[in-house]
Amino acid sequence: MKTTVFLGAAAVSALIAGAGFAAEGDTLAQVKARGELLCGVNPGLVGFASPDANGNWSGFDISFCKAVAAAVLGDASKVKYIPLTGQTRFTGLASGEVDLLARNSTWTFSRDTDLKLDFIGVNYYDGQGFMVPKSLGVSSAKELDGATICIQTGTTTELNLADYFKANNMTYQPVNIDSNSEGEQQYLAGACDAYTTDASGLAATRAAFANPGDHVILPEIISKEPLGPAVRHGDSNWADIARWTLYALIAAEEYGVTSANIEELAKSSQNPEVQRLLGTTDDLGKMIGLDKDWAKRAIAASGNYGEIFAATIGEQTPIGLARGLNAQWTQGGLMYAMPFR
């Protein structure tokens, strides 16, 4: 009898332990209970997400992870970064390995619907481009007929590339690579004539080269690549938190709230929009299961959208990306935060 009881207990405990594998519905509660945000990031793309020699991550996408952690947990450092390749990222999110995917991923119809993801917004409007060595003497993507091209497998760029060459009646030889670092290595070794990925990724990759000046990014942008963070489909509250954290960062730039003046503005700003954003008057946080100061903490973590952009990938950094489409709507760009009220 004792054996039976023991086996029964073992079976029951196995079942209970097994339930832990399941991706539960309430991500916010899980993150709070864990005391840590699991953020899926690029394994290494300078400017967007890359670890330094001490294993400290930094970059454009990393700053978003920090902002969410600050909003939810009150501490921007309570993030565990989980590097995911182009192939593993969506599986990683769907299986509950990460709570949030901030890994320059393109928002597409099938990913949003069939892959059961929810893109919560666009944090970088991008397009696919080509990089070639200057010595190749190529000045347009139209001259790449017959070229060998390095391409990250499992990305939208793979499909755009096939479509672009087909539409222009050109042929190419793809070299499939799994990560940006592998692509960098193959490209520099000359195993491919051109490297193609999002233009921002090309700029970031080139910035990490020993001689960035020896390589040019061709003028053609062959696709729309709206990059945005994504969460699992089905947890609307968690999606709301991530979405409005992003809007808080964008709105902060619009209203001139920076990491430097945020404390001061929280006390003295007369702008009702800023007051609501920073929780001085209304308690918007309560509506998404957070406290009053959530947005204030998110902005304080690494600054507003403009500050983050300038510090990680902007024109003053080695990556040197102009704001372009990613300027505020008031500046002729597409960055437009929905109203906080």
Partner: peptide, 20 residues
């Protein structure tokens, strides 16, 4: 990057369709 069964069906196809 040799496109064998794992590379096509188990790699790119699974990735593009999300049918792991």
């Amino acid at each position: 990057g040799y496109m064998d069964l794992r590379g096509t069906l188990g790699g790119t196809t699974v990735n593009q369709t999300g049918r792991e």
